[in-house]
């Protein structure tokens, strides 16, 4: 992408990006993507978040599931690292804590494939600035 030259430019980029994202989020297409965010701050990485993220990327590929796995910063749930947030198409995001590769496997097999929740759910306990 080239240089941003004005506020209007910036807003246009923003709208484009948001459009792309909402397309991803609101699509009713059954093939639309599963999204996984892995909390990758120092605390998460120290508890094994990197291995978990690699596991997800490799296993989605092997098991032929269309998914986007991205890294993010600290979610604040340091007692339950590594933590991940899973968004199934058309559903509210769910945060899982204490995710090792075994739990990750469970999450793919049970939650991603079947919608069956597994242990370690962390309820979101904060408000965002958009709502306030």
């Amino acid at each position: 992408m080239g240089q941003v030259k004005s506020l209007a430019d910036l807003r246009k980029i923003k709208e484009d990006l948001q459009g792309k994202m909402s397309l991803r989020e609101n699509s009713n297409n059954p093939e639309s993507l599963v999204q996984i965010r892995v909390a990758m701050a120092t605390c998460g990485i120290a508890s094994g978040a990197k291995q978990v993220m690699e596991f997800f990327i490799e296993e989605f590929d092997k098991r032929n599931i269309q998914a986007v796995v991205t890294q993010t910063g600290c979610m604040g749930y340091c007692f339950a690292e590594p933590t991940i947030e899973v968004t199934l198409p058309g559903q509210a995001p769910v945060v899982f804590g204490y995710v090792d590769t075994k739990k990750a496997d469970d999450i793919i097999e049970k939650y991603v494939k079947n919608g069956e929740l597994v242990d370690g759910i962390i309820p979101v306990n904060y408000e965002t600035i958009e709502k306030k």
Binding site: G73, C74, M75, Y126, E127, T128
Partner: peptide, 13 residues
């Protein structure tokens, strides 16, 4: 919700 994230608005997101 007791928490409100302003400084942490994008953290973990």
């Amino acid at each position: 919700k007791k928490q409100l994230r302003i400084a942490l608005r994008n953290c973990g997101f």
